[in-house]
Amino acid sequence: MKKNPFKQTMIIVLCISLILTSVVLEVFAKEHQDSLGLYAKSAVLMDADSGRVLYGKEEEQFLANASTTKIMTCILAIESGRLDETVTVSQHAASMPKVHLGMTTKDTFLLKDLLYSLMLESHNDSAVAIAEHVGGSVEKFAEMMNEKAKELGCEHTHFITPNGLDAKDETGSHGTTAKDLATIMSYCIKNDTFLKITQTKQHSFQNVERSRNFTCNNHNAFLQMMDGALSGKTGFTADAGYCYVGALKRGERTFVVSLLACGWPNNKSYKWADTRKLMEYGLEHYEKVKVKAKQELETVPVINAADNSYDPDKEILMPVRVKGKDLRVLKDKEEKVTVKCTTKKVLQAPVKKGTVIGKAEYYIGEEKAVSYPIVAMENVSARTPRWYLQCVLEKFLF
C-alpha cells in the first residue's frame, strides 16, 4: 500500500503541536500555581488589624480591579460629604453604561441613597454623580482617591474612574494590586457607616423630587456564605475579569480577602470558591495570642548628670522601659514572636522622663508586626556651676 506523504506530514505536525501545547500549559500552570490552588491570578489574605499579608499569590502585580474600586469611592464620600446632601446629575453621569441606576439630568438624589446604589447594585452612574458632587469633577475626585490610597500605604494603585470601568490616561491604566486593595478594605471596615451600607440587604428610596422610586438589592453573596462575614464588593470588566474584596470577623480575628482576575465568563463562581478557601485557611491556621510588652531592659548611662550625692565621679544610669501595652497579635501556630530592642548607647543630661531613646520591634517570624518606643523612666538634671560648687563644699567642708 502506497504511503501518503502529506498525511504523514500532517500527523507529525499534529503530534508536535500537541506536545508543544502540553508543555506550554504545564509551564503556565507552574507559573500560576499556589498551594491553595486558587483560581485568581492575584490574591491576598490579610490581617485587617495589622495589615500583614498572611497568604499571597502575585499580591503586588498591578491589574485592573473593576468595581472593587467603589469601596474607595464610598469611603471618600462618607468622609468628605454629608449623607443628607443633595446630589445633582450631570449629563456625563447619566450617560454611564450598565450597570446603572438609570438617572437623568432632571433627577436629584440624597448622597446617602446614591451610596446604597453604588455599593449594593454597583451602579456606574451613581459613582460618577457621587464623584462630581464630592470632588467637583471626576478628575479631581480621582486625585482624592489616589491621595487617599497613598495615605493608606498603597504603593501600586492608580485610580482614574470612580466606578472602576477600564480606563487609561497619560500615567497608565486604572488598577491596583491585591495587597493594596486589601489594605483599602481593611481601612473601610473600620467605618460604621460603610459597614451599615454594605451589610444592608435591600434599600428603597426616591429621587428628591419624589417622582421616581428605586430599589437596590445587595449582590454580595459572601454575606450569606460564612458566619462573621462583614462586608464586600464584587467587580467585573473585560480587562479585569471577575474581582472581589471582602472581610470576615470571628472573635478577635478579622480577615480581608482580595482577588483580581479571578476568571472570566462563564466562571462567575470562582471568586466565591477562592474567598471561602482563603478565609477558611486563615481561620484554621491563625490565632490571636497575647505578647507581653518587654519591660526589663538594660539601663543607659547619662553623661553630665547631676544627682544629690554631689559626687562628680559617680556614674548615673537611666532606667528605661517600653512604652506600649501587651499585644494581641494574629499569628500562625508555628510562628515565634521575638522582640528586638535598640537604644542610644549614652544620653546627654538633661533628660526628661518619657523622652524616647530607642524602640522595641516585635517580629512574627521574620516579619515586623509593630514597633513601640523605649522611653526614659526618670528626670535627670544637667550639672551646673552651682552643682559643682556644692560638690566642693561637700568634699572639703562636710
Rank of each mutant, 00 (worst) to 15 (best):
S117Q: 04
T86P: 00
V291P: 02
T171A: 14
L248R: 00
K314N: 09
V128F: 02
S80F: 06
T176D: 10
M10F: 14
K345N: 13
K196S: 14
M119R: 03
E132L: 00
D192M: 04
K344V: 06
M226P: 03
C15Q: 10
L223S: 03
K57N: 08
H285K: 15
D169G: 06
Q61G: 05
L38G: 03
F396C: 02
V128D: 01
N267H: 15
K271Q: 10
T86F: 01
C154E: 06
T171S: 11
M318K: 02
K353I: 10
V291A: 04
T200D: 11
M144I: 08
K336F: 09
D34P: 00
A273K: 09
V291Y: 06
A261V: 02
Q224M: 12
R328N: 13
P265E: 07
K368Q: 15
K325M: 07
A293F: 02
L330K: 03
N304G: 10
Y388K: 14
G228T: 06
L38I: 07
G81D: 09
V87Q: 02
K7G: 03
M46C: 10
S95R: 05
K168S: 14
E394L: 09
K30P: 00
K196W: 09
R386C: 05
A127F: 09
E155M: 13
L181G: 03
A221N: 08
H32T: 15
Q202T: 15
I75R: 03
K41R: 14
H174W: 04
T68R: 05
W387M: 09
K353Y: 06
F62G: 01
K2H: 12
L36K: 00
F194Y: 15
L181K: 01
A305L: 06
H32I: 05
A93Y: 01
T183V: 11
Q206C: 13
N308W: 11
V89H: 01
C243V: 08
L25V: 10
R82G: 01
V138A: 05
I11L: 15
A229Q: 03
